Amino acid sequence: MTASERPIQIIPSVLPADWAAMGQCVKDLEAAGVDRIQFDVMDGNFVPNLTFGPELIKACRKYCNVKFETQLMVSQYNSETMLEQYVDASKGPNGERGVVIAHVEANTHLHRVLGRIRQLGGSPSVAMNPHTPMEMVKNVLDMVDHVLVMTVNPGFGGQAYIPTMLDKISQLRKTIDERGLTVDIEVDGGIKANWTISQCCAAGANCFIAGSGMFAYPTLKEGCDDLRRVAQEAREGKVLPTPS
C-alpha cells in the first residue's frame, strides 16, 4: 500500500492539555474526531523532562474508546523494565493493540524491544530523533507498524518544526514502498495546519501528531478538521510553499 493509499490520521499529543483534567481531555479529543491520542512518556533520562507513567494512561481509558499510542522517550532500562505496563496501558477497551513507540537512540537491543512489544499484544513502532539517519531503522522496518520521524528534538512541546526532515521522510517512504511493507510514517514536532503538515504529507507521511498546533484552536474539532483538510489537499496536489 503506497503513501497515497494509506489513510491520513490526525493524532493529538496531550502535552498541552490540562493534566489535572486528562480524562475529560481524552473524551473531548475523541468527540473532535481524532484517529489516535498520543501520550509522550518522558523519564528525565532520555529527555530532560518528566511526564506520564502507565497508570495515568490506563486511567484515561475509561473516558474514551479511541486508540492510544505511547511514545517511550525513556532510557533503555525504563523501556525494558516497564514495557509490559506501557503496552497494557496503551491497549483499547477490548484489549485491542495500542501503538507503542520505542526510540532507536535509546535502545541498544532494538529488535528485542520491538519483538517484545508485539509479543505482549502491542503494535510495535520505532521513532528517530532529527539527527538520526533513516538507515538506523532500515533493519527493523519488517518488525514495525509505524515509523515516527521526529521533526523537533523530543522533550518539550511547542518547539519549532525542523524542515530538513523532509528528505528523511521521502527516503523512508521510498524504502517502505520498494520493500512492499505496510508501514505508516508519522511525524511529530511543530506540526500545524499549514506548510508543515502539507509538505510532510507530500513527502510521504500519513500520520500527523500535533500538540500546541491543535490545542491552539477555539475548539479541538476545528483543529482536527483543519489539520486533516490541509493534509488531504496536499495529497491532491495542493502543497503549501515554505514561507519566505
Rank of each mutant, 00 (worst) to 15 (best):
148 L>Q: 12
168 K>P: 06
198 S>V: 02
193 A>F: 07
192 K>Y: 15
156 F>E: 12
196 T>W: 04
140 V>H: 04
211 G>H: 09
162 I>R: 13
185 I>H: 00
175 T>E: 15
149 V>S: 07
135 E>A: 15
201 C>P: 03
172 L>A: 01
162 I>F: 04
174 K>R: 13
149 V>T: 05
161 Y>D: 00
153 N>S: 03
213 G>C: 11
134 M>G: 08
211 G>W: 09
160 A>N: 11
189 G>M: 07
137 V>N: 12
158 G>W: 14
163 P>L: 05
152 V>T: 08
184 D>V: 00
195 W>F: 15
184 D>K: 02
170 S>Y: 15
137 V>E: 10
192 K>G: 13
184 D>N: 13
211 G>E: 05
181 L>D: 00
210 A>Q: 01
148 L>R: 09
188 D>C: 14
185 I>G: 00
208 F>E: 09
149 V>N: 06
134 M>H: 04
155 G>F: 13
194 N>E: 15
181 L>F: 09
201 C>T: 13
170 S>P: 02
156 F>Q: 13
155 G>Q: 10
173 R>N: 03
145 D>G: 11
155 G>K: 15
166 L>R: 03
186 E>Q: 15
139 N>C: 14
167 D>V: 01
152 V>W: 06
139 N>R: 11
137 V>F: 07
147 V>D: 05
186 E>L: 15
145 D>T: 14
178 E>Y: 00
169 I>C: 00
150 M>R: 07
194 N>S: 14
166 L>A: 01
206 N>A: 01
144 V>L: 01
155 G>H: 10
188 D>K: 11
136 M>Y: 08
180 G>V: 13
163 P>W: 09
164 T>E: 11
135 E>L: 15
193 A>K: 06
142 D>V: 01
175 T>K: 14
191 I>G: 02
181 L>W: 03
193 A>P: 08
180 G>P: 07
184 D>Q: 09
193 A>E: 11
169 I>T: 00
172 L>N: 03
206 N>K: 06
209 I>W: 01
208 F>L: 02
164 T>G: 03
189 G>E: 05
210 A>E: 00
157 G>A: 15
157 G>H: 05
164 T>M: 08
151 T>A: 07
146 H>N: 13
186 E>F: 10
155 G>M: 10
199 Q>V: 05
173 R>T: 03
204 G>K: 05
206 N>F: 01
147 V>M: 06
178 E>F: 00
134 M>Y: 09
159 Q>W: 13
200 C>K: 08
203 A>G: 03
186 E>P: 05
161 Y>F: 14
203 A>N: 03
210 A>W: 01
200 C>L: 02
210 A>D: 00
153 N>R: 00
203 A>S: 14
169 I>S: 01
161 Y>M: 06
154 P>F: 15
166 L>M: 02
180 G>I: 14
165 M>S: 02
141 L>I: 08
195 W>N: 14
200 C>V: 04
213 G>W: 11
204 G>E: 06
138 K>S: 13
142 D>E: 10
184 D>P: 00
177 D>A: 02
205 A>M: 04
207 C>E: 08
158 G>V: 09
145 D>H: 08
141 L>F: 04
207 C>W: 04
175 T>S: 12
194 N>P: 07
212 S>A: 12
181 L>I: 04
212 S>N: 14
204 G>W: 05
167 D>A: 07
137 V>S: 07
195 W>I: 08
149 V>A: 04
